[in-house]
């Protein structure tokens, strides 16, 4: 989505009613964020909306990017936020070989997740249940981590249910979203 470098244009303040709506929506999408929501998005603070190309809107607070949204699609967290609260999102893991493709903006493919290095929900090697037990449906927001790395490298929307992925082991797994080092990542505020 953000393969090219971005230039942020206008920044505007979000109406407090709209801000409440966004907050509610975030909580609905990411129930696990509930305990942190007051730190991430204090009720009183003024949220700002930055318009990006291709009808993407980015919500920032004090020049810290928090969430972005393409038109009325799912509201996705910015990776800096994911890094701060890694446990609050549904996560998957890709194997090492796939990292370099993801970081250059490729669509995430299923083999990267199904191979031994990758993790899907209900993986036997995942003892602590870090990657969840329930199968995920297409259209859910996932954070992608990488084999041998601590931090997430990609945020996107699933294109294929995880159960199907395990069966087919082919095809596109995740829509192009926000990855480390992309235009959104490199965007400067000030």
């Amino acid at each position: 989505m953000f393969k090219k470098d971005l230039t942020s244009s206008s920044k505007s303040k979000v109406k407090s009613s709209a801000q409440r709506a966004i907050r509610a929506r975030i909580l609905e999408t990411y129930p696990l964020l509930e305990p942190h929501i007051d730190t991430i998005l204090p009720k009183k603070d003024q949220l700002e909306l930055v318009k990006l190309p291709d009808r993407v809107s980015l919500y920032t607070l004090n020049n810290v990017p928090l969430f972005f949204q393409h038109m009325d699609d799912a509201i996705l967290p910015h990776l800096t936020l994911v890094h701060k609260y890694p446990d609050c999102f549904t996560r998957l893991r890709i194997d090492r070989g796939a990292i370099r493709f993801v970081l250059s903006g490729a669509t995430l493919m299923a083999p990267g997740l199904t191979s031994p290095g990758g993790r899907l929900p209900g993986d036997e090697q995942d003892g602590e249940g870090r990657y969840g037990r329930e199968e995920l449906e297409a259209g859910e927001v996932v954070v992608i981590e990488a084999e041998g790395k601590e931090n997430a490298c990609f945020v996107g929307v699933l294109k294929m249910g995880t159960a199907e992925m395990k069966k087919v082991k082919k095809g596109q797994a995740c829509e192009a979203g926000h990855y480390l080092g992309d235009g959104l990542w490199g965007l400067q505020f000030g």
Binding site: L103, N151, L180, G181, G186
Partner: peptide
């Protein structure tokens, strides 16, 4: 600007 563990891909 990436987390250091990803530097090798930068």
């Amino acid at each position: 600007s990436l987390p250091p563990e990803y530097c090798e891909f930068g």
